[in-house]
Design a protein around this nucleic acid. Structure first.
Length: 201
DNA sequence: TCCGAGATTCACT
DNA sequence: GTGAATCTCGGAG
C-alpha cells in the first residue's frame, strides 16, 4: 500500500470521528537526518465550547488560537512547566475542536526518537507512551505550533487497513478534573504502547 | 506494585 | 497568585 498523506477532508470531520479513525494511522516527521514515524494507539477528543476540559471552552485566546484554524493544523501547547503536548485540529475554521495525540508505537527512526528524549529510554514501550513523551521524541515544540499537516514536514498517513471496532476501546480522559463522565479517550485494545502502566487500561 | 511529590513555565483569573 | 490535557524517581507496603 503506498504511503499517502491524509487529505484535508479527513480533518474536517467531527473530532470524535477523527479521533476514532486516527487509531492505527501513522504520524510521520521528515527531518534532515531521518524519517520518524509512529503508529497512533491512543488519542483523546476535545470539543471546544461544549467541553469544560478544553482549552477553548472559554473562547479564543492567544494560546489557543490555532484551535480555531481549519482542520489539519497542529496545536502544540506547553504545560506543567516542562512539557509539550500535540493536538490535531479538526472541523472547519472557527470550530475549536482538537484531538490530543497521547501515545504512539515507534516504527521508523527509533535511534533518533530515543536521542530526542532527555532521559535515556531503555524500553521501546516507554519511548512515546504519553503526550509529552511523544512530542519530545518527535521534536515537537513551540515552533511546531500551527504546522499544517497537509503541507509541512509533519503529516499523518495510512499504511495498513483500518482497524475494526473490536480492536478499539474507550475510557474517560486522563489528567483532567472536568467532564470526567465523557468517554472521549480512544485506544487500541491490548496495545503495549498506550500510556500509563504497561498493559494497563 | 502503588502512591506521593518535585520539577519549572506559562496563561489566565 | 494559582493551577495546569505530565513525567519520573524514590520510598513504603
Amino acid at each position: 500500500m503506498p504511503h499517502r498523506r491524509l487529505p484535508r477532508s479527513f480533518y474536517l470531520q467531527p473530532a470524535l470521528d477523527v479521533a476514532r479513525q486516527l487509531l492505527g494511522l501513522y504520524l510521520v516527521r521528515k527531518t534532515g537526518r531521518a524519517v520518524l514515524a509512529g503508529r497512533i494507539v491512543e488519542v483523546e477528543a476535545y470539543l471546544g465550547p461544549d467541553d469544560p476540559a478544553s482549552h477553548a471552552y472559554r473562547g479564543r485566546t492567544p494560546r489557543n488560537e490555532v484551535m480555531f484554524m481549519k482542520g489539519g493544523h497542529l496545536y502544540v501547547y506547553f504545560t506543567y512547566g516542562m512539557h509539550f503536548c500535540g493536538n490535531v485540529v479538526t472541523g472547519p475554521a472557527g470550530t475549536p475542536h482538537a484531538v490530543l495525540l497521547r501515545a504512539l508505537e515507534p516504527v521508523d527512526g527509533l535511534t533518533v526518537l530515543a536521542e530526542n528524549r532527555t532521559l535515556p529510554v531503555m524500553k521501546l514501550e516507554a519511548l512515546c507512551s504519553g503526550p509529552a513523551k511523544l512530542c519530545q521524541a518527535f521534536g515537537i515544540a513551540r515552533k511546531e505550533n500551527g504546522t499544517d499537516l497537509c503541507r509541512g514536514e509533519i503529516w499523518i498517513e495510512r499504511r495498513d487497513a483500518p482497524l475494526v471496532d473490536d480492536m478499539i476501546a474507550r475510557s474517560p480522559r486522563v489528567g483532567i478534573s472536568k467532564a470526567r463522565e465523557q468517554q472521549w479517550r480512544f485506544f487500541v485494545k491490548g496495545s503495549r504502547f498506550v500510556s500509563g502502566k504497561t498493559g494497563r487500561q
